[in-house]
Simulated assay, not measured.
Amino acid sequence: MNTYLMLTTRTNQFKQGHVAEHYEFLDRLQAEKRLKMFGPFSDATGGAYVIEASSL
């Protein structure tokens, strides 16, 4: 497995209603030991994720 840092940014298509499902997905990735750490940017423009995967 490789470790990757993934950065995301919000776009004008962002929907607040999807946040709960997003966190459920992150919880599942953590339970599978594929998501090592994550967090939002302090200015709420996106977030960072450290993941393990076999390839990009």
Rank of each mutant, 00 (worst) to 15 (best):
M1V: 03
M1S: 13
N2V: 05
T3V: 03
Y4W: 13
Y4H: 12
Y4P: 04
Y4E: 06
L5R: 13
L5I: 10
M6G: 07
L7P: 08
L7M: 15
L7D: 10
L7T: 10
T8V: 00
T8S: 06
T8W: 02
T8R: 05
T9S: 09
R10P: 02
T11P: 14
N12H: 15
N12A: 15
Q13W: 12
Q13P: 09
Q13T: 10
F14W: 09
F14S: 10
F14E: 01
K15S: 08
K15W: 13
Q16H: 14
Q16N: 15
Q16G: 14
Q16V: 11
G17R: 14
G17I: 12
G17Y: 12
G17H: 15
H18V: 07
H18L: 15
H18A: 14
V19A: 11
V19Q: 12
A20G: 09
A20H: 10
E21K: 08
E21R: 14
E21I: 02
H22T: 04
H22E: 01
Y23C: 00
Y23P: 02
Y23E: 00
Y23W: 08
Y23T: 00
E24F: 04
E24L: 06
F25N: 08
F25V: 04
F25G: 10
L26K: 09
L26R: 02
D27W: 02
D27H: 05
D27N: 09
D27L: 04
D27Q: 00
R28P: 00
R28T: 00
R28M: 05
L29V: 01
Q30Y: 13
Q30T: 11
A31V: 03
A31P: 04
E32V: 05
E32I: 04
K33V: 08
K33P: 07
K33N: 15
K33G: 12
R34F: 06
R34W: 12
L35W: 02
L35D: 01
L35F: 03
K36T: 06
K36Y: 08
K36E: 11
M37P: 03
M37D: 11
F38S: 10
F38E: 01
F38Y: 06
F38D: 03
F38N: 06
G39F: 03
G39I: 00
G39M: 05
P40C: 04
P40R: 03
F41Q: 05
F41A: 01
F41W: 02
F41L: 04
F41E: 00
S42A: 08
S42V: 05
S42P: 06
S42L: 09
D43G: 11
T45Q: 13
T45S: 13
T45E: 09
T45H: 08
T45A: 11
G46A: 05
G47K: 00
Y49F: 04
Y49A: 01
Y49V: 00
V50S: 07
V50Q: 07
I51C: 04
I51D: 03
I51Q: 06
A53V: 01
S54H: 13
S54M: 13
S55Y: 09
S55T: 07
S55M: 05
L56R: 10
L56M: 12
